[in-house]
Write a protein that binds this DNA or RNA. Structure first.
Lengths: 141, 141
DNA sequence: TATTGTTATACTCTATAACTATA
DNA sequence: TATAGTTATAGAGTATAACAATA
């Protein structure tokens, strides 16, 4: 392992952390936390998912995701439905209001970032676009 | 290529979040949380800093950073020193044990990511390297 | 026995509001 | 008045351990 790879890893780790915290300031009017928004986003993108699948997809523990889902159920944004083929499983589905909320939240929360991307050169935008794919790929390992 | 800026923003946001949470699993033996590690890292990279500078650099509120520093002082990893020119300011400095800890932690925490980077193509590594710089740049705005 | 979800518990991180001391 | 730091408080997010139900 070369020194270059280690310092590249450090820079990427701290950059991703700092970037995420910067983005947190742009929540505007939305009352959805990061974890709740990410869970709803998974459901909007991928359709109904089990608790375990949601936890794995978002890289948190199952109890942690379960608690996030509890809050979202209380607020009426998702519902737990039993799996007819496996009594242990539950499938989490978006309600109509949940789907509306996550779409509206996405527009609001990402508008600041979209503005920043617009000021970058096409080359830099391409770098970040490819990086987003890679970050998701590495996170999935 | 033409990428819709909003969907690019969404993908980048969720990717950075998922990536950060994936990295959290690789804490191994270190007993340093993300925020504490990031604060110590700032001090190691940039030298002594004020509370406000640390807060701004890491994109958290001043009270949040102040609390993180309180914990680090309690554990003996940093010290508050008065600023001779401005009685309101304090300068936070790493202790010897703090400097040792953050260096060791960095080696441990980033080893998994460095291994992942090693499996990527040189082109993909270059993309992530440039992206790290851009993420830090955008976070600073 | 193994897997899926859940509950209980404790800890870290975070922000807003209010306060102190200094400039 | 304005700025830097601090304290108080509340809330979100997280993990581990232990438990229940089903496979």
């Amino acid at each position: 392992m070369t020194v270059d790879l280690r310092s590249a890893a450090t820079e990427l780790r701290l950059g991703a952390l700092r970037f995420s915290r910067r983005l947190r300031w742009e929540r505007a009017n939305t009352d959805l936390g990061d974890a709740a928004y990410a869970a709803l986003g998974s459901l909007l993108n991928a359709g109904p998912l089990s608790i375990g699948a949601l936890a794995h997809h978002n890289r948190v523990s199952a109890p942690s995701m379960n608690r996030t889902i509890n809050c979202l159920v209380d607020d009426g944004y998702v519902e737990r439905t039993p799996d007819p083929e496996d009594g242990r499983r539950v499938t989490v589905i978006l309600t109509d209001t949940g789907a509306e909320l996550v779409a509206a939240t996405r527009l609001q929360r990402d508008s600041w970032l979209a503005e920043q991307l617009a000021t970058l050169s096409p080359e830099d935008r391409e770098v970040l676009h490819r990086a987003a794919i890679l970050l998701n790929e590495v996170a999935a390992r």
